[in-house]
């Protein structure tokens, strides 16, 4: 299979899955934007109305955080189940095993374009007008996509080895929601070194913070950290993709027999 065939196959599977998903529900495609909006509404009521958070312009702060976080959390969750969900196919054809998580990731990314479009509209309606800092969004999206691919591949392998990992990944996303400053401001941590450590070790927190910097606060993200993270992820991707190719038979056997 050539690289071109591979990516064309990934794209075809992703597009057809989108269609299937949209047909499954009454509101079809609309769910892709309804879901993050509902999250934002609930968080807004709880933290702004009930608890009276002191974060300035909390609504936009929340929208930027949740809309970029949901791409990561949903996609990695779905990608985790992608190998076992295709057991019938894997038991019949010797296809590259990265095909399945990658198709899911692409499918979710197509959906996410609607979420990003909504994010842009919300920002403009609230008076955040496009400026040069917004250009940073492109590299930030690329790095987040890379993070999703690496984590999604790893998740699919783990679930393939033991189904229990699916539950663990689900829980992990909940923990990440709390640990990444989706609905609270990292600068609220009084200890400076804790705050820095969180941004350093948690790439999701770092990316969310960077999105806010460029979209809301007209600040430049930490370029050195961004480059370091990119290199690390590229290395990780090479390692994981290679491992999945090398252990393709083991994966097929796990998928078919468990």
């Amino acid at each position: 299979m050539t690289l071109k065939q591979y990516f064309s196959l990934v794209d075809t599977i992703a597009r057809l899955s989108l269609k299937a998903e949209a047909r499954r529900y009454y509101f079809g495609f609309w769910w892709w934007v309804i879901e993050p909006l509902l999250y934002v509404a609930v968080f807004y009521v709880v933290f702004e109305k009930f608890l009276g958070t002191r974060t300035p312009d909390f609504l936009m702060f929340l929208i930027v955080g949740k809309f970029t976080f949901i791409w990561f959390s949903k996609t990695v969750n779905y990608a985790g189940n992608s190998l076992i969900a295709n057991a019938g196919l894997i038991g019949r054809m010797d296809l590259p095993k990265t095909l399945f998580p990658l198709a899911v990731i692409l499918e979710c990314t197509y959906r996410q374009t609607a979420v990003f479009a909504l994010l842009g509209m919300a920002l403009i309606l609230d008076g955040y007008l496009p400026n040069a800092y917004w250009l940073w969004v492109l590299p930030l999206i690329c790095v987040e996509a890379l993070l999703i691919v690496v984590c999604g591949f790893i998740a699919s392998v783990l679930v393939c080895i033991k189904r229990d990992f699916a539950l663990l990944i689900n829980l992990g996303m909940l923990f990440l929601l709390f640990m990444s400053g989706v609905f609270w401001d990292l600068s609220a941590i009084s200890d400076q070194s804790t705050q820095e450590a969180l941004l350093f070790w948690n790439p999701v927190a770092f990316l969310l913070h960077s999105f806010r910097q460029v979209l809301l606060w007209q600040q430049t993200p930490d370029l050195a950290h961004l480059i370091g993270l990119t290199l690390l992820l590229l290395g990780g991707l090479a390692l994981v993709a290679n491992g999945m190719a090398r252990y393709r038979y083991y994966l097929a056997q796990r998928v078919v027999t468990t």
């Binding site: 057809l16 269609k19 057991a87 019938g88």
Partner: peptide, 23 residues
């Protein structure tokens, strides 16, 4: 082969053909 229930027969046939190596 495992059809996707929400896709039509035609779409499933397309998927099957592409999976089997057709452009």
């Amino acid at each position: 082969l495992g059809f996707k229930n929400d896709l039509t027969g035609r779409e499933n046939a397309l998927l099957a053909a592409v999976l089997q190596g057709m452009s």
